[in-house]
């Protein structure tokens, strides 16, 4: 069976007159139906650009995208803008960090949901209205009927985020993309939205790709986690294994640098330095300048993904490769 998402050697460059930014430098992954993948990374790692590529939302005139991106059987690299409009919303849909800028301020929530449904399906106004109400109830908005007539500014942050989820789910997409949807929310609201997304994913049988910089969020929602650095997946694996025992030095550093309960009084381990400038593609391992274990071989070539255990992989030459070690 074909996976829901199939990405091979995805590269994204942003080309302007002055400079070229190599935002994504060869990303490979598959996502099974009903699976939740978390892409974890710091700002500038290319996680949001990767996510936007799955809907081809990066600015078309500046973006050079190569490789294979297939979502639900559709080729997103070559397909026309016209058929893309049909795919967006019905096959793949997206929620954003800031609902106030993602929602249209001059239309009511009800109108924005109806508009999305009627763009994709031939359905009467009344039926669309009924579906909109069901959707608001699905995302657990209290007094849903009254909220249909509300404008985005009349809702609180948590309700706005729920309304955006309702719009994204209005045409029952197979794949939901989420770009830091809980980062702007308060702690007590963040956990509500995370649990809601987890429930909706299970009830509707969607695949979800969730971008975040917060390890705690990944631990709550992910089946698998991919850690991104300088435009590549440097480690990938099941969430429990990866969080218990990360393989790549960057992933280890990220876990050590995260403040969580029980580290009080201890000094935090830090990663020295800063991420590389992506105006040039790094020739060796992009993390080498900050890595404590660096050796000459790290700088020679970009480390290939090595898999010590089936299901896990890391791009570090220090990680034993299962295929190699059994042959030896």
């Amino acid at each position: 069976m074909e996976p829901l998402v199939h990405v091979r050697d995805l590269k994204v460059r942003f080309v302007s007159r002055d400079s070229t930014v190599h935002a994504v430098n060869g990303v490979d992954f598959d996502l099974a139906p009903r699976e939740t993948l978390c892409i974890l990374g710091e700002s500038g790692s290319g996680k949001s650009v990767t996510l936007r590529s799955l809907m081809r939302l990066n600015p078309p005139r500046l973006t050079k995208m190569t490789g294979t991106v297939r979502v639900g059987g559709h080729d997103l690299v070559t397909t026309s803008e016209r058929s893309l409009a049909d795919i967006r919303g019905s096959v793949v849909s997206m929620i954003f960090q800031e609902p106030m800028t993602a929602l249209d301020p001059v239309f009511t929530i009800g109108m924005q949901i109806r508009e999305t449904i009627r763009r994709h399906e031939t359905i009467s106004r009344e039926d669309a209205e009924r579906r909109a109400l069901e959707l608001l109830e699905l995302v657990q908005i209290p007094s849903a009927k009254r909220r249909l007539a509300a404008y985005p500014h009349e809702l609180s942050g948590g309700l706005r985020q729920r309304a955006m989820i309702a719009i994204a789910l209005s045409c029952r997409p197979k794949l939901l993309l989420a770009d830091e949807p809980t980062t702007a929310l308060d702690a007590t609201v963040q956990i509500q939205i995370l649990l809601l997304l987890r429930k909706l994913q299970q009830d509707m049988g969607m695949g979800v790709i969730f971008v975040t910089h917060d390890l705690g969020v990944a631990a709550e929602i992910a089946d698998r986690v991919a850690v991104m650095y300088a435009g590549r997946f440097i480690e990938e694996g099941p969430v429990s294994a990866l969080m218990r025992d990360p393989l790549h030095p960057y992933a280890q550093g990220l876990l050590g640098a995260t403040v969580h309960g029980g580290v009080r009084g201890k000094r935090l381990t830090t990663i020295p330095g800063a991420p590389p400038n992506l105006a040039q593609v790094p020739t060796g391992c992009a993390f080498a300048p900050r890595c404590a274990y660096v050796e000459p071989a790290c700088l020679a070539a970009v480390p290939a993904a090595r898999s010590p255990i089936p299901g896990r992989a890391a791009r570090c030459i220090r990680v034993p490769d299962h295929a190699v070690s059994t042959a030896a």
């Binding site: 942050g157 948590g158 007590t188 963040q190 956990i191 509500q192 995370l194 631990a219 969430v239 969080m243």
Partner: peptide
């Protein structure tokens, strides 16, 4: 409730119910 709203950091012990409903 605020303390219970923190993500658990442990995928094997996920939160099952939000400790609080609604926004402030």
């Amino acid at each position: 409730a605020l303390l219970d709203s923190r993500p658990s950091m442990d995928p094997d012990r996920r939160r099952l119910e939000p400790p609080l409903q609604g926004d402030p």
